[in-house]
């Protein structure tokens, strides 16, 4: 997916909500377009294979967090942290994360920290 994303033109899908918008605006402008392409491909495949809208419990979504970490920490660290985040999603409860009612459902906030923290 990363290889495909690096070859196709960049696209930037619209933000889902105000937090998503502000979160994206805070990202580095140079990294944003390429990352958004990877997320767009992932979303396109996901929509067609599962025939259901995104049900990610996390805010921002795992793919958006992966893109942010890949941009700031590099690809390898992003993969390790991405796996850790998927496990955090499994563990999601008030013991480990703050919940937020967003888009009509309960979601868990985990804004990516600066690289190394």
């Amino acid at each position: 997916m990363v290889m495909v994303a690096s070859c196709v033109p960049a696209t930037t899908p619209a933000a889902d909500n105000a937090i998503d918008l502000r979160y994206r605006l805070a990202q580095r402008p140079t990294a944003r377009a390429a990352d958004a392409t990877a997320i767009a491909i992932y979303g396109w495949v996901g929509e067609r294979s599962l025939a259901t809208p995104s049900r990610c419990k996390m805010v921002p979504t795992d793919s958006a967090a992966f893109a942010a970490r890949a941009a700031s920490c590099g690809g390898l660290a992003a993969w390790y942290q991405g796996i850790a985040r998927l496990l955090l999603e499994q563990a999601s409860s008030e013991k480990f994360a703050r919940s937020i009612q967003l888009d009509g459902r309960l979601r868990w906030m985990d804004l990516p920290a600066p690289c190394g923290e």
Binding site: I83, L87, L88, A91, K95
Partner: peptide, 19 residues
């Protein structure tokens, strides 16, 4: 998955302390 699991365990402990 192995290293991600270790990172997750440390992260969960920190989060538990924080919450």
């Amino acid at each position: 998955f192995y290293i991600g699991g270790v990172i997750n365990a440390v992260d969960l402990a920190r989060r538990r302390n924080q919450t």
